[in-house]
Design a protein around this nucleic acid. Structure first.
Length: 257
DNA sequence: AGAACCGCCTGCTTGC
DNA sequence: TGCAAGCAGGCGGTTC
């Protein structure tokens, strides 16, 4: 599933491909995506990531916002093809951007204004001190909290598990039980884990592919997600899987306290 | 107000 | 082998 590193990878590739280019045509193949405003003839003036959303700024002040949710992919196509699960496409002079999404959760919207507040961007204006002040008294479980996009952007299930493992924090701890030192390790590991994953062009456990259909390499860096029953690489304990808010959570009961 | 839960979706895995 | 049930989970909306 595309989280921050995967969306960042796509945005960087997209920017190289479509920056300054004119959208010649768009086509929708799924009635769920009907009603997208006409953007034909518009030029792309910026491509940016906002959390897990791809924001493509157009020369009329509107922003095309694409969210891939669970199984969405964007693919660059030089030769027009329509593989299974194609939902939408946008044509340029030298090729097309195709949205492929088996589960049909992905969204494409044209909005007048884009979110320009980067306080929730961990590589933007995010301030740990402010975060702690606002949220450290809450009774929410820490994993739920760091996955909450209204609090901090970009962390989904896979990276939440990895971050808490490396920080040595049990995913069911409530925010209110964490010390200043715990918070410090969480933010440090969050930056480290996400930065590494961007360098590795994302985690291809199942669906994730980049703009050119290639897998990322970060799946080889995972130490906890999907590894139930394996020995923990930090302490040798046995990795457990529990369900938290409907999502599979992996952790090591021996070194995550 | 804040926390937990539900529904959207469909391919894949599991179990009988 | 075949079919049904269960699972995967981001996020907006609803309920508690």
């Amino acid at each position: 599933m595309p989280e921050l590193p995967e969306v960042e990878t796509l945005c960087r590739q997209l920017k190289k491909k479509i920056y300054g280019k004119k959208i010649l045509n768009t086509e929708t193949f799924d009635e769920k995506l009907a009603g997208i405003s006409n953007i034909r003839g518009r030029n792309v003036v910026e491509v940016e990531r906002r959390g897990k959303t791809i924001a493509i700024d157009l020369d009329d002040g509107n922003t095309l916002q694409i969210h891939l949710r669970m199984t969405g992919r964007l693919l660059w196509q030089k030769i027009p093809e329509k593989p299974k699960y194609s939902r939408w496409k946008m044509d340029f002079a030298d090729g097309s951007i195709l949205l492929v999404d088996p589960r049909r959760f992905a969204t494409v919207r044209v909005l007048r204004k884009k979110e320009n507040n980067t306080e929730r961007e961990i590589f933007g204006d995010f301030e740990p001190t402010r975060f702690i002040k606002l949220h450290s008294a809450r009774k929410t479980k820490i994993k739920t909290l760091i996955m909450n996009q209204s609090v901090i952007y970009g962390i989904g299930n896979i990276y939440a598990c990895e971050i808490l493992h490396r920080a040595g924090i049990h995913p069911e701890r409530t925010a209110a039980t964490l010390t200043k030192d715990d918070w410090g390790r969480i933010f440090r590991q969050a930056k480290g884990v996400l930065k590494k994953a961007i360098e590795k062009r994302g985690t291809s456990i199942s669906d994730w592919r980049d703009l050119y259909g290639r897998k990322g390499e970060n799946q080889h860096e995972l130490k906890i997600y999907g590894k139930k029953g394996d020995a923990c690489s930090i302490c040798g304990g046995t990795i457990c899987r529990i369900k938290q808010g409907g999502r599979g959570t992996f952790y090591c009961p021996d070194c995550q306290k």
